[in-house]
Design a protein around this nucleic acid. Structure first.
Lengths: 364, 364
DNA sequence: CTGAAAGCGCTAACAC
DNA sequence: GTGTTAGCGCTTTCAG
């Protein structure tokens, strides 16, 4: 069936490289440009010819060479989406938002992961620059060092050289590099609202789980800190209520165990967790220690993952409009008009659920 | 800094399209071909010229046009990885395996998701064919219908027309289409071993959670069924121990509740779950119903996800060598030599853990 | 060692 | 309406 070319009297397609427009033109008995016009549904070609050429093209299994199209500027735009790891729902939801816009604008989205290898990231950016991608969306936590800012600036320069845009997604604007668009969401406000809700429920010994030297973590911590300060409970990094730990279960679990395995008079009555994943770990440890949720411990998370639906009591969490974040980033990278400039900060929404209760009354 | 071109006396790069090789050649005072050779480290160019051209290129922020290279067959090979959704660890691990091989062979991996829209899948395949991708790796469950096989055949034809390969990943070979390579893993053996382990522990009323009309589900069910039959306990789809349900929490949870919320004499003493996610749901329901794990119920999963590490008792599960699966698929799609032909079936490994105990002794 | 020229597949002026 | 021609940016013979 793919050998339909054998039926054509004219010389078939060149063995290597597949069927070209020339083959279609010859088989149809028209010139190359007529064939091109016919396939593009150009009105300046007769209906008959058009139909004929199109049917020949179909029989020959002709597939236009997008590379050649791109060479002359007619091709489809491509956008690369670079992240550290594919895992995790937030990434998937952002990608989905980006893809939505790409589809609507006939652009092709390409994803790739660096697998946490920084040198791989630069290599990828260079590669995408070579491929003349319209732009690159970089997703991932900034660790906010000078070296990191230098990297970003370099990526920007590389891409700019080929007329491609760079957009940082899920990252706050970098003051020194404010010509690089960023799409952020209100990390700080999320944990602040979570903390305020806990305070309003009567909690005072509220722990923060998951502080780390990454911008995301620092911003989320800042929200917690602000709320606590407003309530007259200043908390700084040296406070034992602040648990500094990487975002992997193997580190989180023991850390939680340490803080929860204390006398009820010292143990926190509530925990603001940096992610839903961390919150999940708290559920486990609480269960192991025989604590009752939410009576013995109130918990809040961040991300509002769909997989939470199996948790009991229901986890209070901060929902982030990841799809909208992705869509905005996509518009920026394609140069489409946007409503909130180059550095939008998307609002988040904290939802209180069953995981929050009043603290257990104590004799103090 | 990106304006270094201003320092060059010769005419700068064309405004549109960025710096080209021609610009570099002119700025270096050599011909285009010499410039090309110099940048390719061709030994037939004098060391001096080479160094000079290279430094000029760097100053000009020259980035070779990969599209033009691909046009003449010198370009980097690209492979597309198409899946239904980015979510989930198995996908991420397969992608990682693929990427590993791609990196090693200087190929570029491009991912894209169909978001469960079948028509989108064909559009993507066509798009990648246009982009003259070397091949496409299709990951996802086959629903094993005639229509589906027709789709696959069509994708294959489209890609073949441009000399690109199609590889199905995580899918069993399709008899009618055995010229399409497939990389599978032993679904059946996984659940069989899980079931055998439960039988050996003394279980007889073993439920199967998650049957559905997809090949993956059917194969996993077959393994369970085989083990049960060998033990003299024939179970077919009409048996109430077989729970037919889609793989989403909203359907799974009530189904589990129905089967577990029975008298101990009727309730299954063990459950073979089609995925770890389903098993997770069982943990929840069991907890809600006040069942003790593993005494009241033994559980096995499938996939052996890393996020299971927070579960107590530890989930017994079937580990799949996803990275190896991805690597093999990558080799197939790149046409590299492989050791087990075009239809390998990777072995899986069932690990019994704390989630399995002897059934609670009953008076029957 | 270097330059001129051909050609990859396509589209878009520009003629007829 | 249709054909001819130029050219996108690059590599690679083929001549010097």
């Amino acid at each position: 069936m793919t050998e339909a070319t054998a039926d054509i009297p004219s010389p078939g397609p060149s063995a290597r490289g597949g069927v070209t427009l020339k083959d279609v033109a010859q088989a149809s008995g028209v010139s190359i440009s007529t064939a091109s016009r016919a396939l593009a549904n150009n009105p300046r070609v007769s209906k008959e010819t058009r139909r004929h050429v199109q049917s020949v093209a179909r029989e020959l299994n002709y597939v236009v060479n997008g590379l050649a199209q791109s060479m002359i500027g007619t091709g489809r735009r491509t956008v690369a989406f670079v992240t550290d790891a594919f895992l995790a729902e937030p990434f998937a939801r952002i990608a989905r938002g980006v893809d939505e816009v790409m589809c609507r604008h006939d652009a092709l989205l390409l994803l790739n992961a660096t697998h946490h290898a920084p040198e791989r990231r630069q290599a990828l950016i260079e590669l995408f620059a070579q491929q003349r991608t319209s732009g690159v969306i970089l997703v991932g936590t900034q660790n906010d060092t000078t070296a990191h800012r230098g990297d970003i600036a370099r990526y920007h320069a590389i891409l700019q050289g080929v007329g491609a845009r760079l957009v940082l997604c899920g990252a706050s604007a970098i003051p020194e590099l404010d010509d690089i668009p960023t799409v952020a969401y209100d990390q700080c406000g999320g944990t602040r609202n979570a903390t305020i809700t806990l305070l309003n429920a009567g909690h005072r010994r509220i722990a923060f789980l998951g502080y780390a030297q990454r911008t995301t973590a620092m911003e989320r911590f800042a929200g917690y800190q602000q709320a606590m300060r407003s309530a007259g409970i200043p908390v700084d990094l040296s406070n034992p209520l602040v648990i500094t730990v990487g975002n992997v279960s193997s580190q989180i679990m023991p850390a939680i165990r340490r803080i929860l395995d204390q006398d009820a008079s010292r143990r926190p009555t509530a925990m603001v967790c940096i992610t839903d994943h961390a919150a999940l770990c708290v559920y486990r440890v609480a269960q192991q220690l025989g604590l009752h949720l939410p009576q013995d411990l109130s918990i809040t998370g961040f991300d509002d993952l769909s997989s939470n639906d199996v948790l009991a009591p229901a986890l209070s969490s901060v929902a982030v409009p990841f799809e909208a974040v992705g869509r905005y980033a996509a518009r920026l990278v394609l140069g489409l008009p946007v409503e909130h400039g180059d550095h939008p900060v998307f609002p988040v929404r904290f939802t209180a659920r069953g995981s929050i209760a009043a603290p257990y009354p104590q004799a103090d």
